[in-house]
């Protein structure tokens, strides 16, 4: 896992920092994007092995990010969506657009690690 690139798209700095710490501790090479612009900039130059993205983000929502990756970039990169509980409609839309997995807030970092590993194992 040392060389695996993980893009963490999360506008909440505290949560992003916490998850970043936890994911790095697991050995992932984590890149944090606080909004849609940074996500596009990153994707224009890099191809991550997996993307973990919040649904609600400025400039580019998680759904638009999935659509961008799947249709514009035509990447098959696994995408895990983080969404608050009770937002099932967005989760369904995300799966329809091509999301691979979903994790609800409040996030259990240990659970996230397991899900990321599972998605990467599929690839």
């Amino acid at each position: 896992m040392n060389n695996l690139q993980l893009l963490l798209a999360e506008d909440d700095n505290l949560l992003a920092s916490l998850l970043n710490y936890r994911l790095k501790k697991e050995g992932y090479n984590v890149s944090i994007a606080a909004n849609g612009k940074e996500v596009k900039e990153y994707l224009s130059t890099n191809i991550p092995d997996i993307i973990v993205s919040d649904i609600m983000m400025p400039y580019l929502s998680g759904l638009e990010l999935i659509d961008f990756v799947r249709k514009d970039l035509k990447y098959n990169t696994p995408i895990i969506i983080i969404s608050s509980a009770g937002n099932e409609e967005n989760v369904l839309s995300a799966f329809e657009l091509g999301a691979n997995d979903f994790i609800a807030k409040p996030v259990n970092p240990s659970e996230l690690i397991v899900r990321v590993a599972r998605e990467l194992n599929k690839v």
């Binding site: 505290l14 807030k105 409040p106 996030v107 240990s110």
Partner: peptide, 15 residues
């Protein structure tokens, strides 16, 4: 403040 904010976003043992 940091801890109060984080308690909303995390669960499980972390919380």
């Amino acid at each position: 403040e940091i801890l109060l904010d984080l308690q909303k976003d995390v669960s499980g043992t972390t919380k």
